[in-house]
Design a binder for these strands. Structure first.
Length: 631
DNA sequence: GCCGGAAAAC
DNA sequence: GTTTTCCGGC
């Protein structure tokens, strides 16, 4: 479904001149979250919908912010209209000055806790606020990443203060002529300095890494600017996403690094209803802890480790690794609505914050929004619809992919794309668009195996996968798998974009559990020779060793019979089984996650069975506990 | 009021 | 790449 234009679209403070400056939609969100501007602009109506009560004032504020004294609503609205194609915004027809954020398209990376202080009666229209910025970084990553998002919205405090000033016109890019981010910078310096743990890195770290280097987690429906949340605002403290820590040790252990990207699905039909199981009251930056999530997290963690060919101990060097909380929809949700359910936490990520041992409460001040690539314009869509269709399969799959570092992927797939995909379950769009991507490696790796990227474990995805596989087997060509695929929800229609399909389209299955491209194409020869001794890349060797160790341990403890069987099949088989197991597990999770949340599927675990997985999880948990407590 | 093309500015 | 500016059209 994605077209070239649909490539990653995100808030890229550093990547482009234009985006370096505050973007209008950020500004809008900023205003929206500030109570003081509720007379000017406020959430109203459906989820994500807001009304500009005083267009002139908003324009003025915007103009002040951008040093464009001539700004007026007409111009501002034009800018807003450009968001239509980007799908950041959408016009609420029939309502004057009313627009609606498409949070499905907005993805947060490192969502910092935002100052919710001002948020008060939160309208339903206000999206939940993901809290706890998250940076999922593998050991290789550097602290600099932490600073990467410093551009804007670094921390709630800063954000709010700046916003306030900005909005009031007291602060503007042009005010001192320094930089577009001047306010932010100043704010950070003045207000944030002492707040975030990442501050500690400041100065220590090299210049920010290119955003590409960041391992970003894109949530499906973040509440970008700490949007006020509907009703139950129960979270006073913005810091801890995890009210309850699944792990021993400070409850806050996990909190800081969680990446609560929520998958928000604006659902007109389904008013937002906070669910206890959901991290609903995101306002407070709280995540409710869900054992299942923990499990997933651990699995993911294990997987990541596994994929990295690293022993979990490798993370000891990263004391602050936090367990992200994969938030999943809970069974509580009406099955019928699982697709339309309230926003769900989308992704979690592992994050580690070097140097910040006690960051339990640090909140990552970085937060990024990632947007989906803009849809083609009408003309383009019309003209290129056919093309889009043909290319959709691979692209769509890509869209939901979550790429981990190249190392990861390379090791696992031996040429396959290293992707970890996270899909929102809430709706089709999310499924398509939400993604966690390691952009840096993505490009590099993507071309290795495009199909894999699209291998999402939704029913549809599986179907697709099968078809692809078949296709591969039959043709050895992975380029045109799209035919059988049902058209994804129509992105062509802007209106549709913001609606939650009443009926899950075949492809949306509700739960997209993008498992990572850990897959071995049946028709493709394993990179590893049966003997396993011939020309095996070092990474693969590590990988194998690691997996074998894991396997042996697990097996030794409990699945002896099975273990024997597995072993009997030989290493090669083991490899294959591992992958399959991962797939199965993904399916299982997928099904289980249907109720709602988004699961972050890091690399699939080699676990052949759930039991094994459990044991691994237990061990992983223990390991993590130890590690964390050690910190 | 809203839309979106076009071109320029940044 | 994003936003501003201008503008014709609905």
């Amino acid at each position: 479904m994605k077209t070239p234009a649909d490539t990653e679209w995100a808030y890229k403070p550093e990547s482009s001149p234009g985006s370096r400056q505050i973007q209008l939609w950020h500004f809008i969100l900023e205003l929206l979250r500030k109570e003081e501007y509720h007379d000017v602009i406020a959430w109203q109506g459906d989820y994500g919908e807001f009304v500009i009560k005083d267009p002139d004032e908003v324009a003025r504020l915007w103009g002040a912010r951008k040093c464009k004294p001539q700004m007026n609503y007409d111009k501002l609205s034009r800018a807003l209209r450009y968001y239509y194609n980007k799908r950041i915004l959408h016009k609420t027809k029939g309502k004057r000055f009313t627009y609606k954020f498409n949070f499905n398209k907005l993805v947060l990376v490192n969502y910092p806790f935002i100052d919710m202080g001002s948020g008060r009666g939160v309208p339903q229209s206000a999206p939940p606020v993901p809290t706890g910025g998250t940076h999922f970084r593998f050991p290789p990553s550097t602290p600099s990443e932490v600073l990467s998002s410093s551009e804007e919205l670094r921390s709630p405090g800063m954000f709010s203060s700046v916003a306030r000033r900005m909005a009031r016109g007291s602060v503007s890019d042009c005010s001192d002529g320094t930089s577009t981010n001047s306010e932010l910078e100043e704010a950070v310096g003045a207000e944030d300095r002492a707040v975030g743990p990442e501050r500690a890195f400041r100065g220590l770290l090299p210049p920010r890494l290119p955003h590409d280097s960041l391992f970003r987690v894109y949530g499906g429906g973040p509440n970008p600017a700490g949007l006020p949340r509907p009703a139950p605002r129960v979270h006073p403290e913005p810091l801890s996403p995890f009210p309850v820590s699944p792990l021993p040790g400070p409850g806050g252990l996990l909190a800081p690094t969680l990446s609560p990207a929520l998958s928000m699905t604006p659902t007109p039909h389904l008013p937002y209803t906070p669910s206890p199981s959901l991290s609903s009251p995101m306002v407070g930056s709280h995540f409710s802890f869900n054992p299942e999530d923990m499990k997933h997290y651990l699995q993911a963690h294990t997987q990541s480790v596994f994929n990295y060919h690293l022993s979990p101990r490798a993370f000891l060097h990263y004391p602050n690794i936090v367990i992200p909380q994969p938030h999943r929809p809970t069974p509580e949700k009406p099955a019928a609505h699982h697709l339309h359910g309230p926003p769900m936490p989308l992704a979690h990520s592992l994050s580690q914050q070097p140097g910040g041992g006690e960051d339990g409460h640090q909140h990552p001040s970085q937060f990024k929004f990632k947007l989906q690539p803009p849809p083609l314009g009408r003309k383009q869509r019309e003209a290129g619809s056919s093309l889009a269709t043909s290319s959709s399969s691979s692209s769509s799959s890509q869209s939901s992919s979550f790429t981990v570092s190249g190392q990861l992927s390379s090791s696992i797939l031996a040429g396959g794309p290293p992707k970890i995909k996270v899909e929102p379950i809430s709706d089709i769009e999310s499924e398509e668009e939400v993604e966690v991507t390691d952009i840096s490696e993505e490009d590099e790796l993507n071309h290795n195996n495009e199909d894999d990227e699209g291998d999402i474990f939704t029913p549809t995805a599986r179907h697709r996968h099968h078809q692809l596989n078949n296709h591969h087997q039959a043709n050895g060509n992975s380029s045109s798998p799209s035919a059988p695929l049902p058209p994804l929800p129509d992105d062509d229609d802007d209106e549709e974009v913001f609606k939650t399909p009443a009926t899950p389209p075949p492809g949306s299955g509700g739960l997209a559990f993008p498992l990572i491209g850990l897959k071995s194409e049946p028709g493709q020869p394993s990179p590893i020779s049966p003997g396993g001794t011939r020309c095996i890349p070092l990474k693969l060797r590590f990988k194998r060793r690691w997996s074998e160790d894991q396997k042996m341990e697990a097996d030794g403890e409990r699945d002896e019979a099975e273990d024997k069987k597995v072993r009997a099949e030989g290493e090669e088989e083991v490899e294959g089984k591992r992958e399959e197991a991962g797939r199965r597990e993904g399916e299982v999770e997928n099904g289980g996650g249907r109720g709602g949340g988004v699961i972050l599927g890091l690399m699939l675990p080699p676990a052949p069975t759930q039991r094994r997985a459990s044991s691994e999880l237990q061990r992983a948990t223990a390991q993590l506990s130890l590690e964390n407590t050690g910190c």
